[in-house]
Design a protein around this nucleic acid. Sequence first.
DNA 1: TCTCATGTTTAGGT
DNA 2: GACCTAAACATGAG
Length: 238
Amino acid sequence: MILREAVEALHIKGKKVIEVEGNTKIDKDRMLHQKVTDIRSWGKHFLICFKDFTLRIHFMMFGSYRINERKDTAVRLRLGFSGAELNFYTCSVKLLEGNANDIYDWSKDIMSPHWKPTQALKTLKEHPEMLVCDALLDQNIFAGSGNIIKNEVLFRTRIHPLSKIGELPLAKLKELIKETRNYSFDFLEWKKEFTLKQHWQAYTKKICPRCDIPFKKEHLGKGKRRSFYCNHCQRLYI
DNA sequence: TCTCATGTTTAGGT
DNA sequence: GACCTAAACATGAG
């Protein structure tokens, strides 16, 4: 989102790529002299659309970018335009064939204006055995959510990470969905202000700010990702 | 200096 | 095929 907004402000839409560089294995020359048709994002994917294909950038854990400046480290992909330059580092780069609208379901992107909570609800109901800690990391349900968001949303909604989706009362399930989007917007604002870390209530925390007892820290769910939670105030639905 | 982690894909095993 | 695990990526925080 932050990157997309920054790139939109460059007004490269309609402009042609005049320089490509970098150590990516993709056929980057395909973008040379091609006109950018759109700048988009879906979850953690950053997309630069061309007429017949789309460039997809995913920053994984350690990716970074620079706009109109360069880092000393090896560039994975550089796109040059007249008056602007984009540099991407240590990221996953891919060319997707066809139109992005045919590839991406925008209603699953938790920050999109096209986001549909009913869509998330429907998919969740199809997986009653799924653990909430897994659901909040599932990009097919909550595209854009990640491990920080998972921990913070479960703390805010007072749901234990090992709760089963099928055991949550409907109202609680709806609250979970709503709060995932809510927190994502807070996340975005705090990230822009460089105050994200200060606002963490659960993630990396040792003590529950609500009841002052020690948090549990465990690696839970399919991906064994870090979970910080309070055994006292986060209820286990099982 | 060392370990771990905002994430995903892929290769391999059972 | 379903399901799991480890590896790879490679930087920066604590």
